[in-house]
């Protein structure tokens, strides 16, 4: 019930933030309307970081505490993170074509490391499908999830470490946090979009986690069923 309310609030927030970004905030002086893509693009990228950070932490938690609920959290965050990474890439392409003149440049470090991020976590999800044993699956996934997380800071700082096409962070870089290189209307609109996407993320995380737990319960019930049947058969002999 509470989750349902969160879902409704998230829905309203996403609609409101989208309306503000599209119709209320002025366009950028140099880029025009295309710059409006920045809001969902950046918000998606940040939530992808958050998701994969959660996957790594929950993976470490599983290795440490051996609680399958933590593995369910890791799995849920990875799936949602893949979605947000895809959104960030799609938004970036739609922004790049009208402003840079190209959809994609393989040689740009930010773009390439982000593509790698997507590939790593799609690999993570595929890996999970390979095993029927919940504990083994959780352990393997946790290891991959922790290793893959190394790419998160690489993606974020790629724009500062290497020469590329992608611009550096407007408000996300350490020396820019209190002094963003954009007027407050733009920053406010971005933070609004980020807040709305975070609410949606929370809601989706809760639902995805419930799904993971329900699937695990069904898996376990089937296993027990088979054991009981087998025992009955054995006893009857």
């Amino acid at each position: 019930m509470k989750t349902r309310i969160l879902g409704l609030v998230a829905l309203a927030a996403v609609i409101a933030a989208t309306a503000v970004a599209l119709f209320v905030v002025p366009p950028d002086q140099n880029q025009g309307d295309a710059q409006r893509i920045m809001y969902p693009h950046v918000a998606s990228a940040w939530l992808a970081y958050l998701s994969f950070g959660v996957t790594a932490l929950a993976g470490i938690g599983w290795l440490w505490k051996r609680d399958l609920r933590l593995d369910a959290v890791a799995h849920s965050a990875a799936e949602i993170g893949v979605m947000f990474t895809a959104f960030a890439i799609w938004g970036g392409m739609m922004w790049g074509r009208p402003v840079w003149g190209v959809f994609w440049q393989w040689e740009d470090p930010r773009l390439t490391t982000t593509a790698l991020l997507l590939a790593l976590y799609v690999g993570y999800l595929l890996l999970r499908r390979l095993s029927d044993d919940p504990e083994r699956r959780a352990t393997r996934a946790a290891i991959v999830g922790v290793i893959a997380a190394v790419d998160i800071p690489i993606v974020h700082f790629s724009v500062e470490w290497w020469r590329g096409l992608h611009q550096t962070a407007t408000i996300g870089s350490p020396d820019r946090v209190l002094n963003p290189a954009a007027p407050m209307v733009f920053v406010g609109s971005l933070l609004g979009m980020l807040g709305a996407f975070t609410l949606a993320w929370l809601y989706l995380m809760i639902r995805r986690y419930q799904l993971a737990r329900a699937e695990a319960a069904r898996e376990e019930a089937r296993r027990m069923d088979r054991i009981m049947t087998a025992r009955t058969v054995e006893a009857a002999r």
């Binding site: 996403v14 989208t18 295309a34 969902p40 949602i80 979605m83 739609m94 922004w95």
Partner: peptide, 23 residues
């Protein structure tokens, strides 16, 4: 420009909706 903006928002915001329904 408007076309790209619409394409970006349609896929991202619409994608959130589609994922929720699928869930």
């Amino acid at each position: 420009d408007a076309g790209f903006v619409i394409a970006a928002y349609a896929v991202i915001v619409g994608g959130l909706g589609v994922y929720t329904l699928a869930l």
